[in-house]
């Protein structure tokens, strides 16, 4: 499996995927995108990622279920959770998962870039 400094963005909102991937690529990062858990799992079967930025609410399995499913086979991947719903049960659960951070939408792009670059370079 190829190992590059890569980032996977998982969000069912195409606007989020387009803008965030352009921003992260502008900072020299290699970015792939997926719109649901199944697509994300398939991408992980082809290669591993240093960082995965995962929205909590996804069609099919939730972002948190996806992280729990991926973790055993990809122990080196660091996960960042993003969500638009600040007070849902899932958002509270996200804080209890072993993730690097939980960021609320509207995101501060600078904060996300700093967080991702720190993980990739660190």
């Amino acid at each position: 499996m190829e190992k590059n400094s890569r980032v996977l963005l998982v969000d069912d909102n195409l606007g989020m995927l387009e803008t965030l991937s352009d921003i992260l690529e502008s900072h020299g990062l290699k970015v792939d995108t997926a719109t649901n858990g199944q697509e994300a799992t398939q991408k992980f079967q082809v290669q591993s990622y240093d960082v995965a930025v995962v929205d909590i609410v996804l069609p099919g399995i939730s972002g948190l279920e996806l992280i729990r499913k991926l973790r055993p086979d990809h122990p080196d991947t660091r996960f960042i959770v993003i969500t638009a719903y600040t007070d849902t049960k899932l958002a509270r659960e996200a804080h209890e998962e072993n993730v690097v951070g939980v960021l609320y939408k509207p995101l501060d792009p600078d904060k996300l870039v700093t967080m991702v670059k720190g993980l990739v370079n660190g």
Partner: peptide
């Protein structure tokens, strides 16, 4: 209000990202 705010956060986030991208380019 809580449900509406969740829905509105999505487009606001996308627009903010786009402005950020334009500013750096």
């Amino acid at each position: 209000a809580s449900r509406l705010s969740g829905e509105l956060r999505q487009p606001l986030s996308v627009i903010r990202n786009a402005i950020y991208f334009l500013n750096i380019h």
